[in-house]
Design a protein around this nucleic acid. Structure first.
Lengths: 237, 237, 237, 237
DNA sequence: CATGAATGAGCTTTCATTCAT
DNA sequence: GATGAATGAAAGCTCATTCAT
């Protein structure tokens, strides 16, 4: 029974298995690379470790990505999946006042993005943007700009409905963007190594940030006709 | 007139010239190191290149700083930690209301730190903290903790004087810290490569941030007995 | 007949050739390292030279041994520690009187260790122990202690059988150890450069030492019922 | 009063002081170098540390010794002061039996040489002989050979008086030499780092060695007409 | 003479990349 | 296609030696 046919079918099976794995390879490598790039940064991530985590050999990594730089670029491109349509839809459908919309947006962002591996990409881009300018431009176009537009529409809604005062649109966006990107960056830098006493609880951080953004630090006379908008504000300890 | 005095002064000159080099070295090395650390990050900066830029050989660098980590620490002390006494003194001496103190603080920070190469250190630490835990701990101790304490005192002043409402101290600090560190990080990442149209003007960014922090986005009835505290707020464009 | 077997055997051959190199490497490296350590000492032996002598590159050395210290330890294990079981077995199996066992032991040591490059390791450790405390501790544990134990068992055997008088065990061991280690040290120091007239013939040295250790220099009345145990003692010239 | 005369006399005083120190310099350097070479070996001893211990600058060391090798050679040559005439005289004058002479000699050697810094020279030569062959030859001529001759005369005395049996003279010498040189070498190698439990007490070591050399390990019928020659022999523990 | 700042070759170790199998 | 053994260019740091002062 050691006929050529048997050999062929063995080979076919092997080839099929290979092919199946082959198609999965890049994805497995990219996932492993994302984890490691986020955790250690670009320079400190060793190619061999990426390969090992993806379950392949070092040589195979270079079969799919001609260099570590190409791998990095692929990781970033791969992970910029637009969740924007979904968010835009939610924004359109929202019925309540805009302050609550801002609260919802920031908390949702943390739950969907900040608290997931994807926030690592932000940290990564912040860290490596200057080493990969084309990638940075790409990221700006694909992620930062749409995100800014989304925030801008929220602000505009507040202004249009008379809830928010007048504000510079270009910089007003950062009012919301900065605390979020800072949180993502911090979580992956000092957040991994600072002692427990100074460790930041993201939900509490977000709550304090959003209430300050909305109402400011300065005392103000209680608004005439509105229920407490600030149930989450924590008292000074 | 070939008096001992003359002899002494010759010796003094000689010594002085010799000594002057020695005394100048650390400063030259620190300046070179700051440049390169900011430009390339900690890990990617080669000791030899620092030396070359300071106009000395590799060995000389290690004559003055026992390791690359010590060099970095010295850069931080020279450019950041060392300035806290001055900043604290300014805080003590300030006479106006706390809202103006916050405005002053953030604008001064931009002028002194953010707008200089020094802000690159913040970005660098955000990028590399997780890879150099000892450096991260040092930075937290020498920079983050005193900085947080300083901000906390500002907030407490506002509360004590009845200008600020109650706020959680731990997270309230980030209200001021986050926009500044975000700006520093942004400037050294996307700021170096984003096209002119989206480029951020730091002074305007700071102004919008500080007014939002103080007064919030939400409209409020004008306070009974105070003139507009917000002359800088730019109008929506 | 192009059966799977043929295919398999081709693969096997390929694998074997590949594997053979890999399996041969450690041995080649250990041999090269032994040579160089003995010739130049631990500190003065450069990793690159070991690699070159083994016919590989610097990097390859560190593929098999994680550091120069580990390389040295492996050399010691390969050449010394690893042989104790064999030596212990010989000791257990020995049937004759203990004086002859001591003679056998010292001559065998010379044949197996002293007369080979391995004795250079003893000299090397004597020279560099104080500079490499971790290596010294390792050597003490892996070589000195088991060696002392072995000698102690020989002495104890002599005492138990009534052949040897009572002796302090701790220092009695040096009675046998010192002449051997001295010989090894001498061979690799003055032995390499002293002129022929004063050159020491190890076998003769060993013979004189062992007879003196056994019977002393002092004359003694011939023991009642034993033939001369000392046929090798050379006469004074 | 700032006359040239004053200047000259100041200069003269300075020069005198300089001259006085200048003559002391080489000695101070050699003493410092001896300590360090013995403690750390040739390669591990840093020129700067020798200079510092001698109280001069690194540059000055190279003013007196053109290289580290020359310094090493000078250290060895400096420390080979013949104590042989004195020892020879003592040997001639000794009245007791030769066994006691051997005991005296070995204990005296320990007190005079082994226990002093000079024994470091032996260790040093053992360690570095192969790197400095001319020096090794010199040392052999100046130290080893006269020492051997002295021991040979002691042995010959024992033979001539009928106290010692016949023995090969060339190798018999090592019977006494080996334990002493081993002790010196061991003291400066493992002696500095082995744990307290295995630490060797030199006087006890010498005692056990000398009694074994004289009387051997093997039991013997008590000599008919001699008082116990072996009061120091320690009992097995 | 004496100094000590400066040098730079040299060391161990790491890791992206290659290529024979 | 896939492997992993092998490579060799760096990198941080040391220290004998030099030389301007």
């Amino acid at each position: 029974m050691s006929s050529p046919i048997t050999l062929c079918s063995i080979a076919a099976t092997v080839r099929a298995k290979h092919a199946r794995r082959k198609e999965a390879r890049p994805g497995e490598l990219l996932a492993a690379a994302l984890d490691l790039f986020v955790e250690k940064g670009f320079a400190a991530t060793r190619a061999e470790e990426v390969a090992k985590r993806a379950g392949v050999s070092k040589g195979t990594l270079f079969l799919y990505f001609s260099s570590k730089e190409e791998l990095f670029k692929a990781v970033v491109r791969e992970n910029i999946s637009g969740r924007y349509p979904e968010w835009n839809a939610k924004l359109e459908a929202f019925q309540g006042n805009t302050a609550d919309l801002v609260r919802l947006f920031m908390r949702q962002w943390w739950a969907d993005v900040g608290d997931s591996r994807v926030s690592g990409i932000s940290k990564l881009m912040m860290s490596e943007a200057s080493n990969f300018p084309e990638l940075a431009a790409f990221y700006q176009q694909e992620v930062i700009d749409p995100g800014s537009a989304l925030i801008r529409r929220i602000l505009q809604r507040g202004i249009d409905l008379g809830e928010f005062g007048p504000i510079d649109m270009q910089y007003g966006v950062y009012t919301i963007l900065a605390p979020m990107l800072f949180l993502a960056t911090w979580k992956h830098s000092f957040g991994t190594c600072s002692d427990a006493s100074t460790r930041l609880v993201p939900e509490d951080y977000i709550n304090v940030q959003v209430e300050t953004i909305l109402n400011g630090l300065c005392v103000r006379p209680p608004p005439a006709s509105s229920p407490s908008q600030n149930p989450q504000r924590k008292l000074a300890s």
